[in-house]
Each structure stands twice: as C-alpha cells, then as structure tokens.
Design a protein around this nucleic acid. Structure first.
Lengths: 345, 345
DNA sequence: TTGTATGCGTTATCAG
DNA sequence: CTGATAACGCATACAA
C-alpha cells in the first residue's frame, strides 16, 4: 500500500505561479478578464501538470454534477444482463461520455438510509435522468418525473415525459405483412406482460391488423403471459399450445426470448419451424441469428434509441430545447424486418 | 418544469431543533458525547423529515466517497453486453449496494479533460476499484494497481493484485475428463486470444492433459484466434476446420460463444453435433441451454466470483484484512460441468 | 487585470 | 454534554 500521491489543488498552482487561486479558476473556466500573457502561462503549466479540479468540490459549489442518473428498476429482474436494455444503456453511456457526462445508477439508498429516487438525485446533484425501464405506477417514478430534474425515457410513456423508443406499430405491421407475403393466413401472437407499454402497444397493433386484413382468428391464438425471460416463455408456451383447437400458421412473438421459448416448446410438441408454423421475434438480440432456426425478427435500433434519448436529455439539461419542444416529445425510432429462417419462404 | 424543492441541510435541522449543526452531525454519526434525550429527539425529527446529508459535501470533507469504481475496458468491445462480465458486474453491484456502496464506471475523462484511471479515482475520491477486464500492459492499469487505492480483479492476475476468478484448470479438466468418459479419444481445443489470462490458462491446462492422458493429438487440432464474439469465432472456425487432415472426435471450446460459432461452422461443413464431433463450451451463458444442440459447458459461478471479489475489496477498504492476507490473494472459484446435448452419450 | 472574501454543506477539533 | 470555528477545494462577487 503506497501512500497517496497528494492531489494538486488550485492553491498549489496559484502558489507555484505566484498568482491567486481565483485567477487560476477564471482561466480554467474561460471566464472574467485575464491578460493573455498569464492565461498562456497558466494554461501551459496546467497542461504540463495535468491538473483537474476536484470533482466533489466543484459539484458542491456548482450544484450540479455532469452526471446522468439511470433508473434501471429490475421489473425484469436481470438488470445489466437484459439483452435489450443492456445494449441501450451501453450506447447511451458511450454517447453521453463523449459529451463529458458520466452515468451513475440511481439506487434507493444512500449508505444505510432509504431515499426516494428524487431525493437521491437531489442529494447527488444529478443533472438528468434516464428511465430505462420502470413502473408507471411507482410513486417514486412519478415524483421524479414531475420534479424539476430533466428526465427522458427509453421505454415508458408518461404525460410530460420526453421519451425515445421504437415504432412498435410499425414493427408489428412489418412482421404481419411479411407473414401475409409468404402466404400465411392465420396469425397468432405471443405477448408478454401488458403492464409493459411495449407489449400493450404491440397487442393493439396486432389486433387492428387482424381486423384490417380480415385474417382468420381464434381468441386462443393470442395470449399474454406474466413474467419475463426464456424459461418462463417456454413453460407458458407449452400450456398455451395445448389450449389450441387448431394451430395458426404463424405467430408473432413480441420478444426474441419469447420467440425462442415458444419455438422450443413448439418443437417439443412436434411442430416443425418454419414448415408447420412460422415464428417472428422482436428485438434482434445478439443471439437471434445463432438460434436454430435463425430468427426472423423485428430489429430495434438500440443505438438510435439511446442516442436520441441522450440528445433530448442533454438539450433539456443545457436548456437548449427548441421552441415548441418543451412539450412532451415521443420520438419513434423506425424498426427493421430481419428475415432469417424461422419463417417459411 | 417545477422549481426544485430546496434540500434540507444540517443547518435547517439545527435551527428547527434549536441546537447547533455540529450536535446534529454528531448524532447522525454516532460520534462524540450527546445526551440521550437530545439524541432521541433529533433522531425522531430526522426520521420524520427523511434528512440525508448532502453526498458531495460529505465526500469533499471525508475524502472518500462510499463508491467503487469499475474498470471495464472494452478489450472485448461490447461492455455491458458481454455475456459473462455483464453478469459478474450485476452480481457485484447487488452485493456492494447492500453494504452501502455505489458503483460508478471509471472513464478516462472528466468533462473534457483526459485523466488516467488513477487520477480519475483520486479526483473522485473513489474508495476502491474493481478491474472487471483489462489489459495487463496498460500503463494506466499498472499505475492504478500499484497505487494506494484498493483494487481487486475478476479476471486478470498481477503481482500484488487481489483477485477472484474461476478455477480454469479445474474447468478444463472437468471437460476433458467428460469427453474421455463418453469415449472420445482425440480431443482438440478452440481458443481465444492468448493475451487473455483465461485463455492462456485454459490452453496450458489442455496441453498438460493431452500429455497426461497420451491422447492422440495433432497440432492442427488446437488453434487460438484473435478477437472476440460469435461472428468472429464462426468465421475463423470455417478456416480452421478446413486445415484439418482428419477431424478430432471432440473439441473443447474455451467460451460459449466460441462453441456456438464453432458448432455452426461445423454444421456448415457437414458434421453432425454430437454424433460426429462432441463440443464443450465454457461459461454457461444464458443462451447455452437454448442453443441447438443445447451446449454441454463449464459453468462459471458468476455470482460467487463477484461476491468473493466484493468481499475482498470491502475488507481491503475497511482495513479488515486478516493477518497474512495483505499478501496477494487469488481466489479460485470452483466451476461445474453442465451436461447437455452437444456431447454424445 | 488581479486579488480578497465568502459560501457551498459537512465534519472534526477544541473550547465552553 | 454542547457549540463555535476551521477546513475540505472550488468559484464568484466584489474590491483593489
């Protein structure tokens, strides 16, 4: 254990340069009037020593932290391992770091004390918040969103909350149309918890397409299950399949892991994919292409979602929101049909 | 945009209670002598208002931050999406949060300034560091590890650096023995970049097993490729397979995504898995069981690795390291053979 | 153009 | 047992 290399302060520099601390500070912040000569001199010295102002002192003084808080409530219970939101977070992180911001996970406790999200953010002087996932009805979320702290979401929609997410109506239409194109007539859907905005919207889009195209439909061809993840999808699919009087020719699964669970359950029940039933997934997670059969799926543009959210948030933070944009924005990012082999030719 | 609810300070409490700020502070920290009566009174009031001391002021004063920095250098370039390290990070986060610590990603810049890892940690008063992945030769890593800041690693081994990782020798032995048990005689290995400690160790273990068991072996049955990820593994596997004079009966792939790439390449080349060639993966990532065929693999205990690393680090931070343990510790976490269907019966 | 004084919110030291 | 005071490192208003 070495002893800490004592960190340089603005006082040290002032002493070394025979100037006052405030002059140094001014130069560092391009503020106030300083002679070109001393500015140059100090800047050189600073560059040489690599001085950077102590972060916590700055934050304390400035009352903001160049930090974005992340709400990643584990409704899906796998947090960072989540195949979709994990990717969005990574892209978001990359983007804001380029702009000089850091990210930090918002938790509900500080040391041993319990705080609400909002209190935590205040306490830490967080500049803005990304709601990656979250429960619309969580009072903590509501408090946070309706506070003065700029928030943006990559998933949920709430009055007054800016957000950026996939065009899910488009996604379901793309999938549905593809199934029609390859000659499937009867189309079912395998859906996750309706408490999730994404699943609710996809369901709505699906039902209106059924109506629009007068596709043969039995109510047992649609189901929404509780819980998340492959295993859960697999277990439920087994029961669902057993409930059919007759199998549909194709199924839209509303996430890739659900599609995988479903397909493996279908196989167990003796169906061949795609010969007997075509299945389309949603997300295009990394594994979709490695699955057997490789999944035809709706690709969400995770990077675009993340960057759009980041841009909105950074504008909000900088007060650069253009005229008329103070109103809630819901950015819809286009999705893309990726045709692989889980749908028949 | 609401106006901020002004945050309560220790002065507000002092005023309300007609006491001095320092008394409040003492009570909050169970330090110094305070009469039981006032202590009770203040504690009640504090609980009622939910006051929590401003984090940045505390850090500034205390010179430490109850924060663990994470080095997640993107040698593998997918960061949070990494199927193995993403899981380890999640488990680590869960563990330290329970103990009242937060995690934060260490970056090489602060605002627009470039810092080394060590400088950044100093600047932020980080209490300790988890090196999740990292390049042994990165001068930044070396500087950090040899500094006074407690560090622990979940992957790399360096003199003086405590670490916690899988028992990879055991893993390869388990896999090798299983292949022997099911009757495979000739065994090859598909390895990733040797600059990674894990791959280097697995290679070593593999080679000594070959010698020990006098297994038939041709040098073309072992290869190590550059780069990471499924696609890379797939592409390289195609070439590798073409280089064989004769195929081995079984292959140890040193990660699950490599196993998947390899298997899919083998299929393209007309081999059946496991009838023609048995393949064992390594990691047991979430998808291993969903793959076709479901992967026989060596399961790394991600949670145990993370928690062991967290415990070591927290002890270091609290100075509770037991006698004799100041020396470098390399905790080896047992792995487990998971038999599925990519190895023949 | 530069320097001084003060406050950000805590905590630790030292009187009272 | 309690309270004033200083200090953490920086940034700003104001004085020189």
């Amino acid at each position: 254990m070495k002893s800490p290399k004592p960190r340089q302060t603005i006082y040290d520099i002032a002493r070394d340069m025979e100037l006052s601390p405030s002059t140094i500070s001014k130069i560092l912040h391009h503020t106030g009037k300083v002679s070109e000569a001393t500015r140059k001199r100090v800047l050189e010295y600073v560059k040489k020593t690599g001085f950077v102002a102590n972060s916590n002192a700055r934050i304390l003084k400035a009352k903001h932290s160049w930090t974005i808080g992340i709400v990643f409530s584990d409704i899906a219970s796998f947090g960072l391992e989540h195949p979709f939101f994990g990717s969005v977070l990574q892209a978001f992180k990359n983007y804001v770091e380029k702009k000089g911001f850091e990210i930090v996970f918002i938790v509900k406790k500080l040391g041993q004390a319990e705080l609400t999200y909002y209190e935590w953010c205040q306490n830490k002087s967080v500049d803005g918040v990304l709601l990656l996932t979250g429960d619309l009805n969580d009072p903590d979320i509501i408090e946070l969103v309706s506070s003065e702290i700029p928030c943006v979401s990559a998933d949920i929609i709430m009055p007054g909350l800016h957000s950026s997410m996939s065009d899910d109506k488009m996604g379901i239409e793309l999938g549905f149309q593809h199934l029609l194109n390859i000659g499937c007539r009867s189309i079912g859907a395998y859906c996750g918890p309706l408490s999730s905005r994404a699943y609710a919207e996809r369901t709505q889009a699906f039902r209106s397409l059924i109506e629009k195209h007068h596709t043969p439909f039995e109510e047992s061809w649609y189901t929404n299950i509780n819980g998340y993840g492959y295993q859960n999808a697999y277990d439920n699919a087994l029961k669902w399949i057993a409930s059919w009087k007759k199998a549909p020719e194709a199924i839209l699964a509303f996430s890739d892991d659900m599609a995988m669970g479903l397909i493996n359950a279908l196989k167990v029940k003796g169906y061949r994919i795609p010969q007997d039933i075509s299945v389309i997934g949603y997300d295009d997670i990394a594994f979709a292409g490695m699955f057997n059969p490789p999944l035809t799926t709706i690709r969400q543009n995770k990077v675009a979602i993340a960057e759009s959210a980041a841009e909105i948030l950074l504008n909000l933070i900088n007060g650069e929101t253009a005229e008329g944009e103070e109103e809630q924005q819901v950015h819809r990012i286009p999705v893309q049909l990726v045709i692989r082999e889980s749908t028949r030719k």
